[in-house]
Simulated assay, not measured.
Amino acid sequence: MQKITTCLWFDGQAEDAMNFYVSIFKNSKVLSVMRWPKGHADEGKVLVTTFELDGVPFQALNGGPQFKFNEAMSQSIDCKTQEEVDYFWEKLTEGGEPGVCSWLKDKFGVSWQVVPEQLPRLLLDPDRAKAGRVMSAMMQMSKIDIAKIEAAARG
C-alpha cells in the first residue's frame, strides 16, 4: 500500500474527471466510487472516487465550489518520446488550455506538466552554457519539442 495519495477536489465532476484520466493513461483503473448514503441530501451522488493512473493512486472528492485548482500543484508526466509528449498534450488539452514550458490545464482545471526525459537532463548539464541554451529554447515553447531542445543543446 502506498503511503501518500493525491486527492483532487472537484465541484461535482469527480467521476467524470476520474473516467477521463483513466481513459488517457495506460495501466489505469477505477478502484471505487463512494456515493452519499440513503437519507443524505445528496443521496446517490458521487462523494469520493479512487483510481490508479499507471499504478499511481489518486482520489477525487466532490467537495464543492469552495476551492479551485491552480498551478501551485501540478501532476508531472515523464515522457520518453515526442510521440508520448504529443499524445498526453493532445489528450489533456482537449477542452483545457496550453500553458508555457510544458505546462497545461485540463478541462477540469488541473495543472499538468508533460516533460520529455531529455529536458531535465539537458537543463542539469554541467556545461552551463549548454543548459542555458536549452532553458532559452524551452522558455519559448508551450508543448516541448524534443528536437528543438536537443538542437539548442548542440548550439
Rank of each mutant, 00 (worst) to 15 (best):
L47V: 07
Q66F: 06
V30W: 07
K38I: 02
M138Y: 07
Y87I: 01
Q82Y: 04
L104V: 08
D54I: 04
M1R: 09
M34Q: 14
T81L: 02
S23W: 12
W103Q: 04
A129Q: 07
S76W: 09
E52A: 15
S28Q: 07
K148L: 07
P65R: 01
F25L: 08
V114I: 15
R133N: 14
I24D: 13
A60L: 09
F58A: 07
S23G: 08
K107L: 09
G96S: 11
E94A: 08
D16P: 08
K68D: 06
T6E: 00
K91C: 12
L124D: 10
P65Q: 02
K143V: 11
E15F: 12
G99H: 09
V85E: 07
G155T: 03
M18K: 10
T6K: 03
G95Y: 14
S23P: 10
W9R: 04
Q2L: 05
V30Y: 05
T6Q: 06
F58S: 07
K68R: 12
D16E: 15
L122C: 02
V134D: 06
E90Q: 14
G95A: 03
G109A: 05
R133V: 01
A17I: 13
F25T: 07
Q75H: 12
R121L: 13
K148W: 04
S76N: 13
A131M: 06
I4A: 04
Q13C: 11
E84N: 00
A147M: 00
V22G: 05
G95H: 06
P116M: 04
P116E: 03
G44F: 09
A137H: 01
K143W: 06
E43V: 13
T6I: 13
L104D: 11
R35W: 12
M139G: 01
N27Q: 08
L53M: 03
E90I: 05
D11E: 14
P65I: 01
K29A: 14
M141H: 10
A131N: 02
S136A: 15
V48L: 14
L104H: 08
W103K: 01
F10C: 00
S76F: 11
V114T: 01
L8M: 15
T49V: 15
L47R: 11
V30P: 08
L124H: 12
V22S: 04
C7I: 15
I144Q: 03
F67A: 10
N62D: 15
F88G: 10
I146P: 10
C79G: 08
A137N: 00
Q59R: 10
Q140E: 15
K80P: 04
A153M: 03
G39T: 14
F108N: 08
I4F: 14
S102E: 00
A72Q: 14
Y21A: 04
S142Y: 01
T50L: 02
L8W: 12
I24K: 03
M18I: 10
G132V: 05
V85L: 04
P120W: 03
E83F: 00
A151M: 06
K45V: 09
